[in-house]
C-alpha cells in the first residue's frame, strides 16, 4: 500500500516536472509575447500544482499529519496566476508589443487599447 502511494507521488512529481519544463520550453520557443503568455499561466501552474499535491501525500506518509501549507500555496498561485497574466498583457498592449505575423483579428488590438466595443 505504502509502496503504491509512494509510486503515485513519484508519478505526480515527474508529471509536474515535465509540465514545468514544457512551460519553460514554451517561454523560449513561442514566436511572440502574447503566445508566450500562455506558457506560465497554464503549464507552470499545473506543474506546481502536481508537485504540491505530491508533497502533501509524502508528508502524510511520513506520519507528520496533513500539512495544509502546500494547499495554501497552490490556492494562492491559482488565484494570482490569471491576475498577473492579465496585468502583464494589459501593460504589453499599452506598450504596443508587436503581434506574430498572421495573428487573427490583429486590428482588434486598437479597440482594446481604448477599451471600446469591437467594430463590425
Amino acid at each position: 500500500m505504502i509502496f503504491w502511494l509512494e509510486a503515485f507521488a513519484s508519478f505526480l512529481l515527474l508529471t509536474g516536472g515535465v509540465f514545468i519544463l514544457i512551460g519553460a520550453l514554451g517561454m523560449v520557443k513561442l514566436p511572440d509575447f502574447y503566445t508566450r503568455l500562455h506558457a506560465p499561466t497554464k503549464a507552470t501552474t499545473l506543474g506546481i500544482g502536481c508537485i504540491l499535491v505530491a508533497s502533501v501525500m509524502l508528508h502524510a506518509l511520513r506520519g507528520e499529519g496533513l500539512s495544509i501549507q502546500e494547499l495554501v500555496i497552490s490556492l494562492f498561485l491559482f488565484i494570482t496566476a490569471p491576475v498577473s497574466a492579465y496585468m502583464v498583457a494589459k501593460a504589453a498592449l499599452q506598450r504596443r508589443t508587436p503581434f506574430k505575423e498572421g495573428t487573427v483579428n490583429e486590428e482588434m488590438s486598437k479597440d482594446i487599447l481604448v477599451r471600446r466595443a469591437p467594430k463590425g
Binding site: 514544457i22 506558457a39 499545473l46 483579428n105 482594446i112 466595443a117
Partner: peptide, 21 residues
C-alpha cells in the same frame, strides 16, 4: 494543459494565434 503542451512541442508554423471579442 495537455492541449497547450502539445501545441508548444509542435512546430510554430502550425500555430494560429488570434484575438477574440
Amino acid at each position: 494543459n495537455f492541449e497547450v503542451a502539445g501545441r508548444i512541442l509542435r512546430s510554430n508554423k502550425h500555430l494560429k494565434p488570434g484575438l477574440i471579442a
